[in-house]
């Protein structure tokens, strides 16, 4: 049977990990390649890099990181952050990324999703949706959560599926960074709206939240960043915990 996936995410800025795991035996705590390798050795089902490099002149640092990581980690590698065009996607894939996640550019112009999924296949196109609750609906935010577009997240999710996205990475802006758990309502509503897999993100503070994301949010995969920072939990512990709660995972 198909297993649910656990995806640790690393924030990368100017080629360095922000808030990485701080293990004693780590030679360089800021090295994304080394961190990714620890995750994949621990049983991560995929690795995700989110490039949060602000300045344009340092944009290219992510390509180098992806290239080095893909030579060491033999599980799927997803890269997002600042992806604007089919060209950007092409470059990341050529460096060894297996999937590319598109956020702002997908909202601004859904043709980017359409064209890139036609060119490279849906399997490598992930659309990242940042949504925030506004009364009885969720609205899409872009530019790292700074701009409210007013677009209905559920309708947008369906549109992205129709445009050729292979997966949706759903982040609740209300929960992101709060450690109180995923927005289960948002996840389950989007999951039942579309027929492509969804990845839940934003708000994980403990291992039960991962269980909830799959069990009640109907997510195919759960993504978390900060709980793995500073070794609060290891990827291995998280997977064993999911397994103990009856969630099918690859052990």
């Amino acid at each position: 049977m198909l297993k649910n996936r656990l995806i640790p995410c690393l924030d990368v800025k100017n080629g360095r990990v922000v808030k990485g795991i701080n293990f004693v035996d780590l030679k360089d705590a800021g090295d994304p390649v080394e961190q990714a390798k620890i995750y994949s050795d621990g049983g991560a089902d995929e690795i995700c890099f989110l490039d949060i490099t602000a300045s344009n002149e340092n944009r290219d640092t992510i390509y180098d990181v992806v290239e080095k990581t893909s030579k060491k980690c033999f599980v799927p590698l997803t890269v997002g952050g600042g992806v604007r065009s089919v060209d950007d996607i092409n470059k990341l894939l050529n460096c060894g990324a297996d999937k590319v996640s598109i956020n702002t550019a997908a909202v601004q112009n859904h043709k980017v999703v359409e064209n890139s999924s036609k060119k490279f296949g849906s399997q490598c196109i992930v659309v990242a949706i940042d949504a925030k609750k506004n009364e009885d609906r969720w609205e899409i935010f872009t530019h790292g959560g700074r701009n409210n577009t007013g677009i209905n997240a559920l309708e947008f999710a369906k549109k992205m599926e129709d445009s050729g996205a292979g997966e949706l990475l759903i982040t609740s802006m209300d929960r992101d960074g709060t450690q109180v758990g995923y927005d289960i309502d948002l996840m389950s509503k989007i999951s039942s709206k579309v027929n492509i897999p969804i990845i839940a993100s934003g708000g994980v503070g403990n291992l039960d939240h991962l269980v909830d994301g799959i069990k009640f949010g109907n997510a195919s995969a759960v993504l978390a960043a900060s709980i793995f920072h500073y070794g609060k939990y290891s990827v291995k512990e998280a997977k064993e915990y999911l397994n103990s709660k009856g969630i099918p995972v690859r052990i």
């Binding site: 292979g166 492509i196 690859r250």
Partner: peptide, 16 residues
């Protein structure tokens, strides 16, 4: 065959 939406497609992930 996604059996009327019972199975999500693509089939993505780890399977035995």
């Amino acid at each position: 065959d996604n059996q009327n939406g019972k199975y999500k497609l693509p089939h993505i992930g780890w399977n035995q």
